[in-house]
Design a protein around this nucleic acid. Structure first.
Lengths: 161, 161
DNA sequence: ATAATTAAGTCAATATGGCTGACCTAAATA
DNA sequence: TATTTAGGTCAGCCATATTGACTTAATTAT
Protein backbone atom coordinates (compact mmCIF):
# COMPACT_ATOMS: atom_id res chain seq x y z
CA UNK A 1 0.00 0.00 0.00
CA UNK A 2 2.87 2.31 0.82
CA UNK A 3 4.07 1.90 -2.76
CA UNK A 4 0.80 3.11 -4.14
CA UNK A 5 0.65 6.10 -1.85
CA UNK A 6 3.97 7.16 -3.28
CA UNK A 7 2.69 6.67 -6.78
CA UNK A 8 -0.69 8.27 -6.43
CA UNK A 9 -1.09 11.45 -4.50
CA UNK A 10 -4.39 11.35 -2.70
CA UNK A 11 -5.69 14.89 -2.54
CA UNK A 12 -5.53 16.25 -6.04
CA UNK A 13 -5.84 14.55 -9.37
CA UNK A 14 -4.14 16.27 -12.25
CA UNK A 15 -4.05 14.71 -15.70
CA UNK A 16 -0.89 12.81 -14.91
CA UNK A 17 -2.50 11.27 -11.86
CA UNK A 18 -5.59 10.40 -13.82
CA UNK A 19 -3.48 8.63 -16.41
CA UNK A 20 -2.29 6.36 -13.64
CA UNK A 21 -5.93 5.51 -13.02
CA UNK A 22 -6.32 4.66 -16.71
CA UNK A 23 -3.41 2.25 -16.32
CA UNK A 24 -4.79 0.76 -13.12
CA UNK A 25 -8.04 0.06 -14.95
CA UNK A 26 -6.21 -1.55 -17.87
CA UNK A 27 -3.95 -3.79 -15.81
CA UNK A 28 -6.57 -4.77 -13.26
CA UNK A 29 -9.14 -5.68 -15.89
CA UNK A 30 -6.65 -7.80 -17.77
CA UNK A 31 -5.68 -9.70 -14.64
CA UNK A 32 -9.31 -10.04 -13.61
CA UNK A 33 -10.25 -11.89 -16.80
CA UNK A 34 -7.07 -14.00 -16.96
CA UNK A 35 -8.26 -16.65 -14.47
CA UNK A 36 -11.48 -17.68 -16.24
CA UNK A 37 -9.73 -17.45 -19.61
CA UNK A 38 -7.46 -20.37 -18.66
CA UNK A 39 -10.41 -22.64 -17.84
CA UNK A 40 -12.34 -21.61 -20.92
CA UNK A 41 -9.37 -22.40 -23.11
CA UNK A 42 -9.46 -26.06 -22.08
CA UNK A 43 -13.06 -26.20 -23.34
CA UNK A 44 -12.20 -24.28 -26.53
CA UNK A 45 -14.43 -21.49 -25.28
CA UNK A 46 -13.66 -17.79 -25.12
CA UNK A 47 -14.75 -14.77 -23.15
CA UNK A 48 -17.93 -14.52 -25.19
CA UNK A 49 -19.00 -17.94 -23.92
CA UNK A 50 -18.21 -16.87 -20.39
CA UNK A 51 -20.40 -13.81 -20.65
CA UNK A 52 -23.29 -15.77 -22.10
CA UNK A 53 -23.06 -18.40 -19.36
CA UNK A 54 -22.69 -15.76 -16.69
CA UNK A 55 -25.78 -13.79 -17.63
CA UNK A 56 -27.94 -16.83 -18.30
CA UNK A 57 -26.93 -17.99 -14.84
CA UNK A 58 -27.72 -14.58 -13.44
CA UNK A 59 -31.18 -14.40 -14.95
CA UNK A 60 -32.70 -17.81 -15.49
CA UNK A 61 -35.07 -17.98 -18.47
CA UNK A 62 -33.64 -14.84 -19.98
CA UNK A 63 -34.76 -14.40 -23.59
CA UNK A 64 -32.43 -14.02 -26.55
CA UNK A 65 -33.49 -10.42 -26.92
CA UNK A 66 -32.79 -9.62 -23.29
CA UNK A 67 -29.39 -11.28 -23.47
CA UNK A 68 -28.56 -9.29 -26.60
CA UNK A 69 -29.49 -6.14 -24.72
CA UNK A 70 -27.11 -7.00 -21.89
CA UNK A 71 -24.20 -8.09 -24.05
CA UNK A 72 -24.70 -5.41 -26.71
CA UNK A 73 -23.44 -7.59 -29.54
CA UNK A 74 -25.18 -8.59 -32.76
CA UNK A 75 -27.62 -11.44 -33.07
CA UNK A 76 -25.19 -13.21 -35.39
CA UNK A 77 -22.32 -12.97 -32.92
CA UNK A 78 -24.42 -14.29 -30.07
CA UNK A 79 -25.89 -17.02 -32.25
CA UNK A 80 -22.52 -18.66 -32.90
CA UNK A 81 -21.63 -18.75 -29.23
CA UNK A 82 -25.06 -19.84 -28.07
CA UNK A 83 -25.30 -22.68 -30.58
CA UNK A 84 -22.01 -24.03 -29.32
CA UNK A 85 -23.11 -23.82 -25.70
CA UNK A 86 -26.38 -25.62 -26.49
CA UNK A 87 -24.69 -28.28 -28.61
CA UNK A 88 -22.15 -28.97 -25.90
CA UNK A 89 -24.80 -29.19 -23.20
CA UNK A 90 -24.23 -26.09 -21.10
CA UNK A 91 -27.41 -24.22 -22.01
CA UNK A 92 -30.94 -25.34 -22.85
CA UNK A 93 -33.46 -23.41 -24.91
CA UNK A 94 -37.22 -23.45 -24.31
CA UNK A 95 -40.15 -21.61 -25.85
CA UNK A 96 -41.44 -18.67 -23.83
CA UNK A 97 -45.02 -17.69 -23.03
CA UNK A 98 -44.89 -15.39 -26.01
CA UNK A 99 -44.23 -18.18 -28.47
CA UNK A 100 -42.01 -15.97 -30.58
CA UNK A 101 -39.49 -15.87 -27.76
CA UNK A 102 -37.03 -18.45 -26.52
CA UNK A 103 -35.82 -18.66 -22.98
CA UNK A 104 -32.36 -19.77 -21.95
CA UNK A 105 -31.28 -21.65 -18.87
CA UNK A 106 -28.20 -23.49 -17.65
CA UNK A 107 -27.99 -27.28 -17.56
CA UNK A 108 -26.28 -28.88 -14.57
CA UNK A 109 -23.04 -28.81 -16.53
CA UNK A 110 -23.70 -25.18 -17.32
CA UNK A 111 -24.30 -24.39 -13.66
CA UNK A 112 -21.10 -26.15 -12.71
CA UNK A 113 -19.09 -24.25 -15.27
CA UNK A 114 -20.68 -20.94 -14.34
CA UNK A 115 -19.86 -21.67 -10.74
CA UNK A 116 -16.30 -22.63 -11.49
CA UNK A 117 -15.68 -19.45 -13.48
CA UNK A 118 -17.45 -17.14 -11.06
CA UNK A 119 -15.72 -18.65 -8.07
CA UNK A 120 -12.35 -17.65 -9.44
CA UNK A 121 -13.42 -14.05 -9.76
CA UNK A 122 -15.37 -14.02 -6.51
CA UNK A 123 -12.38 -15.35 -4.61
CA UNK A 124 -10.12 -12.82 -6.22
CA UNK A 125 -12.38 -9.97 -5.16
CA UNK A 126 -12.82 -11.43 -1.69
CA UNK A 127 -9.09 -11.76 -1.22
CA UNK A 128 -8.47 -8.19 -2.26
CA UNK A 129 -11.39 -6.63 -0.45
CA UNK A 130 -10.48 -8.34 2.82
CA UNK A 131 -7.63 -5.90 3.26
CA UNK A 132 -9.81 -2.83 3.00
CA UNK A 133 -12.26 -0.98 5.18
CA UNK A 134 -15.83 -0.15 4.28
CA UNK A 135 -15.05 3.35 3.10
CA UNK A 136 -12.57 2.01 0.58
CA UNK A 137 -14.92 -0.72 -0.60
CA UNK A 138 -17.83 1.66 -0.95
CA UNK A 139 -15.67 4.11 -2.84
CA UNK A 140 -14.64 1.37 -5.20
CA UNK A 141 -18.20 0.22 -5.88
CA UNK A 142 -19.73 3.67 -6.14
CA UNK A 143 -17.14 4.99 -8.57
CA UNK A 144 -17.34 1.87 -10.72
CA UNK A 145 -21.09 2.34 -10.84
CA UNK A 146 -20.77 5.96 -11.92
CA UNK A 147 -18.38 4.96 -14.69
CA UNK A 148 -21.31 3.15 -16.33
CA UNK A 149 -23.46 4.94 -18.91
CA UNK A 150 -27.10 5.55 -17.99
CA UNK A 151 -28.65 2.83 -20.13
CA UNK A 152 -26.26 0.22 -18.78
CA UNK A 153 -26.91 1.36 -15.23
CA UNK A 154 -30.49 0.44 -15.94
CA UNK A 155 -29.45 -2.96 -17.26
CA UNK A 156 -27.41 -3.51 -14.11
CA UNK A 157 -30.33 -2.54 -11.92
CA UNK A 158 -32.77 -4.73 -13.82
CA UNK A 159 -30.44 -7.70 -13.43
CA UNK A 160 -30.36 -7.12 -9.69
CA UNK A 161 -33.97 -6.15 -9.09
CA UNK B 1 -26.29 7.15 -5.56
CA UNK B 2 -29.39 6.18 -3.62
CA UNK B 3 -30.10 3.55 -6.25
CA UNK B 4 -26.76 1.92 -5.73
CA UNK B 5 -27.08 1.92 -1.97
CA UNK B 6 -30.24 -0.08 -2.38
CA UNK B 7 -28.51 -2.48 -4.71
CA UNK B 8 -25.31 -2.98 -2.81
CA UNK B 9 -25.37 -3.42 0.92
CA UNK B 10 -22.32 -1.73 2.35
CA UNK B 11 -21.23 -3.69 5.37
CA UNK B 12 -21.04 -7.29 4.29
CA UNK B 13 -20.19 -8.84 0.98
CA UNK B 14 -21.61 -12.28 0.36
CA UNK B 15 -21.17 -14.04 -2.96
CA UNK B 16 -24.28 -12.43 -4.37
CA UNK B 17 -22.98 -8.98 -3.53
CA UNK B 18 -19.61 -9.81 -5.02
CA UNK B 19 -21.27 -10.89 -8.25
CA UNK B 20 -22.66 -7.38 -8.50
CA UNK B 21 -19.09 -6.15 -8.34
CA UNK B 22 -18.19 -8.50 -11.20
CA UNK B 23 -20.97 -6.90 -13.22
CA UNK B 24 -19.91 -3.38 -12.26
CA UNK B 25 -16.42 -4.18 -13.54
CA UNK B 26 -17.77 -5.60 -16.79
CA UNK B 27 -20.14 -2.75 -17.58
CA UNK B 28 -17.80 0.02 -16.49
CA UNK B 29 -14.88 -1.31 -18.48
CA UNK B 30 -16.97 -1.64 -21.60
CA UNK B 31 -18.22 1.93 -21.31
CA UNK B 32 -14.73 3.16 -20.51
CA UNK B 33 -13.29 1.86 -23.77
CA UNK B 34 -16.27 2.86 -25.92
CA UNK B 35 -15.23 6.50 -26.36
CA UNK B 36 -11.75 5.93 -27.83
CA UNK B 37 -13.11 3.02 -29.90
CA UNK B 38 -15.26 5.44 -31.91
CA UNK B 39 -12.31 7.64 -32.83
CA UNK B 40 -10.09 4.70 -33.63
CA UNK B 41 -12.71 3.28 -35.94
CA UNK B 42 -12.51 6.34 -38.21
CA UNK B 43 -8.80 5.65 -38.63
CA UNK B 44 -9.37 1.91 -39.14
CA UNK B 45 -7.49 1.32 -35.91
CA UNK B 46 -8.50 -0.89 -33.01
CA UNK B 47 -7.84 -1.12 -29.32
CA UNK B 48 -4.44 -2.69 -29.94
CA UNK B 49 -3.34 0.47 -31.74
CA UNK B 50 -4.63 2.56 -28.86
CA UNK B 51 -2.62 0.61 -26.33
CA UNK B 52 0.55 0.85 -28.40
CA UNK B 53 0.15 4.60 -28.85
CA UNK B 54 -0.71 5.06 -25.19
CA UNK B 55 2.35 3.29 -23.82
CA UNK B 56 4.76 4.75 -26.37
CA UNK B 57 3.42 8.15 -25.31
CA UNK B 58 3.83 7.18 -21.68
CA UNK B 59 7.44 6.08 -22.04
CA UNK B 60 9.22 7.83 -24.87
CA UNK B 61 11.93 5.71 -26.53
CA UNK B 62 10.48 2.51 -25.14
CA UNK B 63 11.99 -0.55 -26.83
CA UNK B 64 10.00 -3.22 -28.60
CA UNK B 65 10.85 -5.66 -25.86
CA UNK B 66 9.70 -3.33 -23.12
CA UNK B 67 6.47 -2.65 -24.95
CA UNK B 68 5.89 -6.38 -25.37
CA UNK B 69 6.40 -6.75 -21.63
CA UNK B 70 3.76 -4.13 -20.90
CA UNK B 71 1.19 -5.33 -23.40
CA UNK B 72 1.83 -9.04 -22.84
CA UNK B 73 1.04 -10.00 -26.42
CA UNK B 74 3.20 -11.84 -28.91
CA UNK B 75 5.85 -10.20 -31.06
CA UNK B 76 3.85 -11.13 -34.13
CA UNK B 77 0.70 -9.44 -32.84
CA UNK B 78 2.51 -6.28 -31.92
CA UNK B 79 4.42 -6.26 -35.19
CA UNK B 80 1.31 -5.90 -37.33
CA UNK B 81 -0.06 -3.04 -35.26
CA UNK B 82 3.28 -1.27 -35.00
CA UNK B 83 3.98 -1.48 -38.74
CA UNK B 84 0.64 0.15 -39.44
CA UNK B 85 1.30 2.93 -36.95
CA UNK B 86 4.73 3.59 -38.45
CA UNK B 87 3.47 3.46 -42.03
CA UNK B 88 0.67 5.88 -41.23
CA UNK B 89 2.98 8.28 -39.46
CA UNK B 90 1.99 8.01 -35.81
CA UNK B 91 5.13 6.32 -34.51
CA UNK B 92 8.81 6.55 -35.48
CA UNK B 93 11.41 3.87 -34.90
CA UNK B 94 15.08 4.55 -34.12
CA UNK B 95 18.02 2.38 -33.23
CA UNK B 96 18.88 2.24 -29.54
CA UNK B 97 22.28 2.48 -27.87
CA UNK B 98 22.35 -1.28 -27.89
CA UNK B 99 22.14 -1.55 -31.64
CA UNK B 100 20.07 -4.71 -31.44
CA UNK B 101 17.22 -2.69 -29.95
CA UNK B 102 14.81 -0.26 -31.53
CA UNK B 103 13.23 2.59 -29.70
CA UNK B 104 9.75 3.91 -30.37
CA UNK B 105 8.44 7.44 -30.12
CA UNK B 106 5.35 9.35 -31.18
CA UNK B 107 5.34 11.73 -34.14
CA UNK B 108 3.41 14.97 -33.80
CA UNK B 109 0.43 13.21 -35.32
CA UNK B 110 0.96 10.40 -32.86
CA UNK B 111 1.05 12.83 -29.95
CA UNK B 112 -2.13 14.47 -31.15
CA UNK B 113 -3.92 11.17 -31.45
CA UNK B 114 -2.66 9.97 -28.08
CA UNK B 115 -3.88 13.20 -26.58
CA UNK B 116 -7.26 12.99 -28.23
CA UNK B 117 -7.82 9.43 -27.02
CA UNK B 118 -6.51 10.01 -23.51
CA UNK B 119 -8.51 13.20 -23.11
CA UNK B 120 -11.75 11.31 -23.58
CA UNK B 121 -10.88 8.90 -20.80
CA UNK B 122 -9.35 11.56 -18.57
CA UNK B 123 -12.47 13.69 -18.85
CA UNK B 124 -14.66 10.72 -18.11
CA UNK B 125 -12.74 9.95 -14.94
CA UNK B 126 -12.66 13.62 -13.92
CA UNK B 127 -16.39 13.95 -14.38
CA UNK B 128 -17.09 10.88 -12.28
CA UNK B 129 -14.52 11.54 -9.60
CA UNK B 130 -15.72 15.09 -9.07
CA UNK B 131 -18.75 13.78 -7.23
CA UNK B 132 -16.75 11.81 -4.71
CA UNK B 133 -14.71 12.56 -1.64
CA UNK B 134 -11.11 11.57 -1.10
CA UNK B 135 -11.94 8.44 0.87
CA UNK B 136 -14.01 7.12 -2.03
CA UNK B 137 -11.37 8.01 -4.60
CA UNK B 138 -8.58 6.46 -2.59
CA UNK B 139 -10.64 3.32 -2.05
CA UNK B 140 -11.20 3.10 -5.76
CA UNK B 141 -7.52 3.48 -6.63
CA UNK B 142 -6.18 1.25 -3.89
CA UNK B 143 -8.52 -1.63 -4.65
CA UNK B 144 -7.85 -1.39 -8.38
CA UNK B 145 -4.15 -1.54 -7.59
CA UNK B 146 -4.56 -4.64 -5.45
CA UNK B 147 -6.51 -6.35 -8.21
CA UNK B 148 -3.31 -6.35 -10.26
CA UNK B 149 -0.97 -9.34 -10.15
CA UNK B 150 2.47 -8.78 -8.67
CA UNK B 151 4.45 -8.70 -11.90
CA UNK B 152 2.08 -6.19 -13.45
CA UNK B 153 2.20 -4.04 -10.32
CA UNK B 154 5.90 -3.84 -11.02
CA UNK B 155 5.23 -2.85 -14.63
CA UNK B 156 2.87 -0.15 -13.42
CA UNK B 157 5.43 1.14 -10.96
CA UNK B 158 8.23 1.14 -13.53
CA UNK B 159 6.06 3.14 -15.91
CA UNK B 160 5.48 5.71 -13.19
CA UNK B 161 8.92 5.79 -11.64
C1' DA C 1 38.15 -15.69 -31.01
C1' DT C 2 34.40 -18.41 -30.78
C1' DA C 3 29.97 -19.70 -28.82
C1' DA C 4 25.80 -18.49 -26.82
C1' DT C 5 22.34 -15.34 -25.99
C1' DT C 6 19.40 -11.49 -27.04
C1' DA C 7 16.40 -8.20 -29.83
C1' DA C 8 13.93 -7.93 -33.59
C1' DG C 9 11.64 -9.43 -37.82
C1' DT C 10 9.04 -12.54 -40.72
C1' DC C 11 6.30 -16.49 -42.87
C1' DA C 12 2.41 -19.35 -42.49
C1' DA C 13 -1.47 -21.19 -40.38
C1' DT C 14 -5.25 -20.96 -36.98
C1' DA C 15 -8.96 -19.32 -33.76
C1' DT C 16 -12.06 -16.06 -31.63
C1' DG C 17 -15.11 -12.54 -31.68
C1' DG C 18 -16.83 -8.94 -33.52
C1' DC C 19 -19.28 -6.66 -37.77
C1' DT C 20 -22.65 -5.82 -42.12
C1' DG C 21 -26.26 -6.96 -45.33
C1' DA C 22 -29.77 -9.72 -46.95
C1' DC C 23 -33.26 -12.64 -46.28
C1' DC C 24 -36.56 -15.96 -43.91
C1' DT C 25 -40.30 -17.84 -40.59
C1' DA C 26 -43.69 -17.62 -37.15
C1' DA C 27 -46.25 -15.22 -33.79
C1' DA C 28 -48.24 -11.18 -31.80
C1' DT C 29 -50.30 -6.79 -32.23
C1' DA C 30 -52.37 -2.68 -34.44
C1' DT D 1 -55.38 -7.88 -42.81
C1' DA D 2 -51.06 -5.49 -42.37
C1' DT D 3 -47.31 -4.53 -39.59
C1' DT D 4 -44.15 -5.36 -36.15
C1' DT D 5 -41.45 -8.32 -33.30
C1' DA D 6 -38.42 -12.36 -31.96
C1' DG D 7 -35.53 -15.27 -33.69
C1' DG D 8 -32.60 -17.67 -37.18
C1' DT D 9 -29.37 -18.09 -40.96
C1' DC D 10 -26.15 -17.47 -44.97
C1' DA D 11 -22.18 -15.29 -46.65
C1' DG D 12 -18.40 -12.48 -46.25
C1' DC D 13 -15.33 -9.29 -43.86
C1' DC D 14 -12.02 -7.53 -40.35
C1' DA D 15 -9.26 -7.16 -35.98
C1' DT D 16 -6.81 -9.38 -32.58
C1' DA D 17 -4.80 -12.78 -30.77
C1' DT D 18 -2.24 -17.40 -30.94
C1' DT D 19 1.70 -21.11 -32.22
C1' DG D 20 5.81 -22.75 -34.49
C1' DA D 21 9.73 -22.25 -37.27
C1' DC D 22 13.26 -19.68 -38.95
C1' DT D 23 16.54 -15.58 -39.96
C1' DT D 24 19.67 -11.64 -39.03
C1' DA D 25 22.54 -8.77 -36.42
C1' DA D 26 24.54 -7.41 -32.20
C1' DT D 27 26.03 -8.25 -27.65
C1' DT D 28 27.95 -10.94 -23.99
C1' DA D 29 30.21 -14.95 -21.94
C1' DT D 30 33.57 -18.54 -22.12
Amino acid sequence: MADLNNLISPFFLNDKEIKKVIELIFFSYRDFTAGPDKILEKLSFGRAHHRAIYFVGKKNNITIKELLGVLKITKQSLSRVLNQLVKEGFIVVSTGLDKRTKTLSLTNNGKNLENELSTIQINKIKKVINNFNHEDINGFKKILYEMIEADNKKTFQDLNA
